[in-house]
Design a binder for these strands. Structure first.
Lengths: 345, 345
DNA sequence: TTCGGTACTGTAAGCGCTTACGGAGCCACG
DNA sequence: CGTGGCTCCGTAAGCGCTTACAGTACCGAA
């Protein structure tokens, strides 16, 4: 019947008893369009209508259904955050920094822990679920990231040399250089070894480059190839054996991160080789434990929280279309001199 | 015209160029219903249709639009994870454990860091965005949680005495008791003090209860009221002054967590009071630093990862409706004896 | 041959929003 | 008094799915 034509189509059943835009409209005596306009502030509405809608919405404890909003507006108000693990303070700190800024822009966070096995599916699927993706995981191939970046805005943290997406990193090479120079110039070290695999992440590669540069500038050669161990406690334990197996005992160990340095230091000490005295030991990241061990671990502090914040800001802009050409954002790093290099307390 | 009646309504424009269920249906030569059935596996489809749909979907790189799915099915396939902070290893570990199990059930994770200021809005809004909520934050009032639990399935980790939702905790009282008895019976401590505020969290309250019970069972009285400091490094620093200000110097400090214990230990040592020798010091949580400091910190290890996993499992069941009555799930805790209590290396 | 099942499939309604479009009411101006 | 412009509002189409319902085709039993 044509008498039906003018009114909103009959609703099914009140599915969940939850208020919808229809119930709010009815209670406020306006159309759903007006409710939408009032609540999203996208168009002018009369003071009376505005007030009535607000009142009705409040009385019904109305919360807009997220899925309906997204479907109609083609916006998710959500960023995906892709990390490989939450081990150690690095990712936690990064996530906190990211969250803070994202929340300021009313963006929600979808946490994706992307193991290798489940990655392929997940990563591509994200484009049907979020507005943009932040990646802070080292072991995802560059091509995979590039493919994703072609579908949806992507910002990457902590690694470099990526095409088509913004990158946020902290300065590594110069600081690693300075730290290494400190060992050479101040502590007179001559037989230095880098502990960590430069090929595993561009970040570590940059640190290694700084290390290498410092040696070259001082006319030295490394005592050995980098000791390629994983960036974990286990890696540090493994490094103990490698160090002891070296033809000539090094007098300085520059580690890719604190975890490795701490485990390596503890292992050496068990063999009566005392970091700070018998050799210099440095880490990277300034984890909490670094300032509790004795001797305190000389290391470098990345502005991790700020990196997260910057990444969130960038991605938000990029999603909103108000960002310039993609580029690389480098934040400053600070060397933290404690005693494991040989400095006095 | 009635000739139009039989065919699917005309689509607007190909909004984003992305494949939809319509394009897949068209390419496969079937209806969208069949596509949906094939891809979700909710009904039998002929081998030929199945294959054609799969092929078309693959060729078009089709990913179902999450918002449309949710809107139509009233399911989000997402859990909210509410935490107060990611500081320290506790929350990271919890989150990892949770994520692992949630992923196994194909549930996504919405990360909500709920500061006090933004909490009220966020928490209630979650019901229009996720299927269930996991809360691992200590400072949310019980009533607020109860209110949320009335709207949507909720599971709480690490605190007790909550109505209407599942609770996952680790055993605290007995382990705290055992740890305290160790100090009394093995190390002959008599002047014990608890460091931490039992009123801040039910978890710490339980540890304090165990501490208190051990004293009572041994016919002792605590030397002083609990030193009510925050559970942070700053709290530990503050505790140093409190300890030194005590009328009688305690010979054992039982701390609410490792962070406090580590900072307190470092502070005391600076005053030439050596943990392990001059007094016993214990923590709780077994953070990474606990095994690197000297003396190694005697502490207790909660099965944090398992707690996260259990919580995810519970919430998934509860959302699916296949869970029994709400209840409390207690996992075992393990005392970790190192040297800060006075034990030899 | 007829009829009831069984195995699939298509049609279309509906999920709860956003938003283009057009209309109503009102004022100022010619 | 007619007209143009402005402000506010309602109508309805559409977002891309799921799923109830109603076939259709085919087979075996009566």
């Amino acid at each position: 019947m044509s008498t039906d034509r003018g009114r909103p189509r009959a609703r099914r059943s009140p599915t969940s008893g939850r208020a919808t835009i229809y119930s709010v409209a009815e209670r406020a005596g306006v159309s759903i369009a007006t409710v939408s306009r009032v609540l999203s502030g996208t168009a002018v509405t009369s003071p009376e209508a505005t007030e009535r809608v607000l009142k009705a919405a409040h009385e019904l404890a109305y919360v807009p259904q997220n899925s309906a909003k997204s479907l109609a507006s083609a916006r998710y108000q959500t960023h995906a955050v892709v990390i490989g693990s939450l081990d150690g303070p690095y990712y936690s700190e990064l996530l906190m920094g990211y969250e803070e800024v994202a929340a300021r822009h009313d963006q929600e966070l979808l946490l994706v822990v992307a193991d290798l096995p489940r990655r392929a599916r997940t990563l591509a699927d994200l484009r049907a679920r979020v507005d943009g993706v932040m990646i802070a995981q080292m072991d995802i191939p560059a091509e995979e990231i590039a493919a994703l970046a072609a579908l949806i805005p992507v910002v990457v943290v902590g690694r470099t040399r990526l095409e088509g997406c913004d990158v946020v990193i902290s300065e590594s090479t110069d600081t690693a250089n300075a730290l290494t120079r400190h060992l050479i110039d101040v502590h007179g070290r001559r037989r230095l070894v880098f502990v960590g695999d430069p090929d595993q992440s561009s970040d570590v590669a940059a640190r290694h480059a700084g290390f290498q540069a410092a040696l070259t500038e001082s006319g030295l050669d490394p005592v050995a190839e980098p000791l390629r161990v994983p960036y974990t406690e286990q890696g540090g334990d493994a490094a103990v054996a490698l160090v002891l197996g070296l033809p000539s005992r090094p007098d300085a160990l520059v580690c890719a991160n604190d975890e490795v340095a701490l485990a390596l230091g503890a292992g050496l000490r068990r063999r009566s080789i005392v970091p700070g005295a018998d050799l210099s030991l440095t880490g990277w990241d300034d984890v909490t434990a670094a300032r509790y061990v004795r001797p305190g671990l000389t290391t470098a502090r990345q502005p991790v929280r700020e990196m997260g914040g910057r990444a969130a800001e960038l991605l938000h802009r990029r999603v909103g279309g108000s960002a310039g050409p993609v580029g690389q954002h480098v934040l400053a790093t600070e060397a933290v001199i404690r005693q494991s290099c040989g400095c006095p307390d």
